[in-house]
Design a protein around this nucleic acid. Structure first.
Lengths: 131, 131
DNA sequence: TTAAATATGTTATATTATTACACAGCGTTA
DNA sequence: TAACGCTGTGTAATAATATAACATATTTAA
């Protein structure tokens, strides 16, 4: 949590916004929302997003080009991420399952390549949409 | 394999191109390459790509906005995909590991959501780039 | 107290993807 | 065989996502 203190102005504004949303936000919707705070250009948003992803405060949902706050309160670096995505309502939830992350962090296939990061996205129908 | 026969002209041209490449291709690079075959517009490419993804002939590498041919020769539907991506040379390989796919296909977390699809991307350095 | 590193602001532009509309070919079925 | 649904094609325009290039400010650390 101590890293929070050292965020820059724009980074704070944008992290705040993302943390207040329970769903992933897209870069240009963020831009729209922060214009009233003096952030005027896409690049200002993307720069903050890049930094926030880098330090693990937010994650990018690659299949949706959208960003969510990290729910692992102690997450410092974004290197092992998993999400479940409802294909109907687009609700996204971060999956935190110790077994899963252990399994994937230790995964090695025959290529001999050692992975230092992964991103997993599950798709399905959420409880509400299954009804 | 029998589905191959029923691909349309544009779909065949584009699948051919992707299958001949050992690395993921981006939509506009595909467009550039197939102009000589009479495919002139992005939409023609995207439509073919959508279809090919749908029937499992190719996969989209979400983090790279690029498309690779499916290496599972008998893959009919693209519902469980895993790739390893070298962050230095951008080499991408499809991971086919029965244990992994079983594990992920059966994965269920506390949300009770049942997944019907997933996409997993591992990142690291490939053998060549590790040297 | 200067240099290096990080962040900001702005304009322009590149890259990725979709909307909207018109029409062609093919198999069904009525 | 005509009407229909379905899938695919072609084209133009535009939307959505992301980065390059340049100038300047602020913070950090030697």
């Amino acid at each position: 949590m101590q890293k929070q203190e050292t965020l820059s102005k724009n980074q704070k504004i944008i992290l705040d916004l993302i943390e207040k949303s329970d769903q992933p936000l897209k870069a240009y919707s963020i831009l729209f929302d922060v214009k009233k705070k003096g952030i005027n250009a896409p690049l200002q948003v993307y720069r903050a997003l890049d930094k926030l992803v880098e330090i693990g405060k937010i994650h990018k949902i690659e299949s949706r080009n959208a960003f969510v706050a990290c729910k692992n309160s102690n997450c410092q670096v974004s290197k092992a991420t998993a999400f479940s995505i409802c294909e109907s309502c687009e609700d996204v939830t971060e999956v935190s399952n110790l077994k899963l992350s252990k399994y994937l962090n230790n995964f090695a296939d025959k290529s001999g390549m050692k992975y230092n990061k992964y991103n997993l996205e599950f798709f399905g129908l959420c409880k509400n949409c299954k009804k």
